[in-house]
């Protein structure tokens, strides 16, 4: 059907209501699979492949307008929808929660246009789109984590000029970022960058790991799964392939530190080895609770369940260790079971 024919059809209706009613059955069948057209998906995949080939390098792509305001996860949706196939299961996290309005809407868009199964269980998902968290449960080599990115260049906080920053990346000239860390230590006694922690990928590119807390940064190192970072507003995609060396910038004598929650545990499940957020209850109490709600629910059923319960190999772990573990350290462990 050409555009003209469709226009004529519309005019033949008696009223706008009738016209809408006529089109109601067309519904989403009028959309291509997974909302985006095939050329767009191919371009996004190509950018992802290039990002994988050059870990940490920001690859430009033609970010399309999405049925969502830029800055609300449009980059993440384009990457997710380009990666999803009909047999995949999709999970969306918004700062740890599956049930926020934004997460639910993105999940529903994928459900309607790509007809994929959706889940809130990290271990069941093939593709997970996330805003500002990496799940507590260890991901595997058959999973992809798509992170929404508001600001792609870690250097922008030390220099507003993207042109100058591109030159810095080209020459691996990260002196200014080091000065930023130096001044952080001078001011606070330790590096207190709360999110968007500058991170070296494969010893070459400095990367903005999106606004995940420091708690999640060690999970990027030598992980089994692929991480795809996508920014819609800035039209950039970058990636950390599986088993890539990812190192947060730090001084030899002022090491990288994750957030600490001394003497706190989750109010709902009792965990003390997860990333906690402080919340105020209705009766005005201040309590801590797990940020990752789906894992918290599992812990409420079985408080002893480890973060790698679903993995075949034992001792597969990621993220910070339990603060009161035998060696008493909160040192970040890699994905190789330290």
């Amino acid at each position: 059907m050409t555009d003209t024919e469709r226009a004529v059809t519309t005019l033949e209706s008696d009223s706008i209501d009738d016209a809408v009613a006529e089109l109601a059955d067309d519904g989403l069948s009028g959309y291509n699979f997974a909302y985006l057209d095939e050329h767009t998906k191919r371009e996004v995949r190509r950018a992802i492949l290039k990002g994988i080939a050059i870990p940490g390098h920001q690859v430009p792509y033609a970010s399309r307008p999405m049925p969502l305001a830029r800055g609300w996860g449009t980059g993440g949706i384009q990457a997710s929808l380009s990666l999803l196939g009909p047999d995949d299961t999709f999970k969306v996290i918004d700062q740890g929660a599956d049930e926020s309005v934004n997460a639910a809407n993105i999940r529903r868009l994928a459900d309607r246009t790509a007809d994929v199964d959706t889940t809130s269980d990290t271990t069941n998902a093939d593709v997970i789109q996330t805003r500002h968290r990496i799940p507590e449960e260890v991901m595997g080599d058959d999973q992809i984590l798509v992170l929404q990115v508001p600001i792609t260049d870690p250097l922008r906080k030390v220099d507003g000029s993207d042109a100058a920053n591109r030159r810095r990346h080209a020459h691996k000239n990260y002196g200014r970022m080091w000065v930023h860390l130096y001044e952080n230590v001078v001011e606070w006694g330790e590096i207190k960058i709360s999110s968007r922690y500058p991170t070296m990928v494969a010893g070459r590119y400095l990367m903005d790991p999106s606004p995940i807390p420091r708690w999640d940064v060690p999970k990027l190192d030598d992980a089994d799964n692929l991480f795809v970072f996508a920014a819609g507003r800035e039209a950039r995609i970058y990636a950390v392939p599986p088993h890539t060396e990812v190192e947060p910038l730090a001084f030899e004598d002022e090491s990288f530190q994750v957030e600490r929650f001394p003497d706190q545990s989750c109010d709902a499940c009792g965990s003390d080895d997860t990333f906690l957020t402080e919340v105020e209850t209705d009766d005005g109490r201040r309590v801590y609770s797990c940020n990752d709600t789906s894992f918290c629910a599992k812990r409420q059923d079985d408080p002893a369940i480890p973060k790698d319960h679903h993995r075949d190999a034992s001792g597969v772990d990621w993220g910070p260790g339990t603060p009161d573990s035998e060696d008493g350290s909160t040192a970040p462990s890699g994905g190789d079971g330290q």
Binding site: W178, Y182, V185, F251, E252, D253
Partner: peptide
């Protein structure tokens, strides 16, 4: 410090 850090100094002290 920028000059030193650019030259590869990585020890804060």
């Amino acid at each position: 410090a920028e000059k030193l850090l650019a030259a590869g100094w990585r020890n804060f002290g």
